[in-house]
Design a protein around this nucleic acid. Structure first.
Lengths: 228, 228
DNA sequence: CCTTGTCAAGAGCACTGCTCTCGATTCTGT
DNA sequence: ACAGAATCGAGAGCAGTGCTCTTGACAAGG
């Protein structure tokens, strides 16, 4: 990817990746809020001020890590997709998301935990952020096409502002009825709410370990959106 | 509450409250991770080392704030309970929880956001933390008693480890069938997942503002647990 | 070759949590 | 009522932080 460039530019690209790698390693051990540029520079054997040649601020480094995290999660989820049994695929996506989150709790907290104080996520993070919900919508779309989607009769038709907001989602899955789109958002929030509760320790004392609960929830949520 | 004590003890109790107040004010503006003992001490016109007479560490101060936040949220939710229409009460609890969270986003992030690095929540936080789910369980219990709870036929009976874990919840609501208990946990995670998404900016571009979506979700989740 | 731009290094600023010591004040047992 | 014990706020100091600015070395392109 960096074939025809000067030695300086190749060195720069390599060092940028090394910095992100070291930052990710430190992130995994001490967490996002304790991520220290000086510690990163120490690990790389350089001086802290030199890092500012590559990332103008700590926030810019965090943004890079956030985008990488969204992409890693999206990739893990997409790798679990495919196959002919749509319900099994649904559960597999849930499991892949959970597995990634449990393997990278600090990166998960970075993207789904409390926003970092004083940090404003740039627009660039939106696209990688919606890979998982997009994947679920795509699956439901395929289910709809093959007649395997039977939206429950009690799913209320959205009206008013809610119907308006649902319109925004239509281009992402044109064939799905609005009621299913709303339920998909509900299911999406449930998935990450459940995950946050597990990772952040809110389930300790009840559903911990959450393996069985998680799978039961994934199947019940599939039924909730009409996937049988 | 502090009638028959010495002047020193009364002063101590008062100052402890003042410290928490100042800390809460600072929390609201700069966030939990940027909460600085020195800034708190500055606001109170005292020296930073003096704070350590009242809270042995920053973490202890955070613990106090966390417990206060759980209690404030629990109180807000409980204040919304009551009345004879159980479904309206259910929606009112949801609304009260959301209103409190939107009014105190940093305190919400403190209790439902990413865990603070290096901070281990003590057992004392568990009891105030479960006030909201307990409230929901109580409501469902009353619905069950008055015959207004009709668990959907497709709610699967928990088995294996999940059944075992569900047992733990039985003392909290002895009359509810296990399947409803599991669904209550699902609903509980959905509520706070939805809230976190709204507050942490994950819904921007789709369901934001989330008023209508939130109410629709609260009603659909009521139906999901069998409340009609 | 030599100018121009890029680089790491180092010193320094203002901040953080936390510890320790020092008098001064207040409480308590006699 | 008074002496000893406990508690208090103040201040200095330690090791760490993000970030800025300056300095001198090096590589790239004309």
């Amino acid at each position: 990817m960096n074939a025809g460039r000067t030695a300086r530019e190749r060195a720069r690209a390599e060092l940028t990746e090394e910095i992100k790698g070291a930052a990710r390693r430190q992130l995994a051990t001490v967490g996002a809020e304790a991520l220290s540029l000086r510690a990163v520079s120490r690990e790389l054997g350089m001086v802290s001020s030199a890092l500012y040649r590559y990332f103008p601020s700590r926030d810019e480094l965090l943004t890079a890590l956030i985008i990488d995290a969204y992409d890693a999660l999206g990739e893990a989820a997409e790798a679990a997709a495919g196959g002919d049994d749509l319900l099994a695929e649904w559960v597999a996506i849930y499991t892949a998301v959970r597995d990634w989150a449990r393997a990278h709790p600090q990166e998960y907290a970075l993207i789904y935990g409390s926003p970092i104080s004083g940090y404003k996520a740039p627009q660039t993070t939106v696209e990688p952020a919606i890979r998982v919900p997009l994947l679920l919508l795509g699956l439901l779309q395929r289910a709809q096409a093959s007649g395997r989607l039977s939206p429950p009769s009690d799913a209320p038709e959205p009206s008013g502002l809610l119907a308006q907001q649902t319109e925004v989602l239509v281009p992402l899955a044109p064939d799905l009825p609005p009621a299913v789109l709303v339920r998909t958002v509900i299911v999406w929030t449930q998935l990450f709410g459940m995950l946050s509760f597990e990772l952040f320790g809110q389930l300790v004392g009840s559903m911990d370990p959450a393996d069985e609960f998680f799978e039961s929830a994934s199947r019940q949520m599939a039924a909730f959106v009409g996937l049988t």
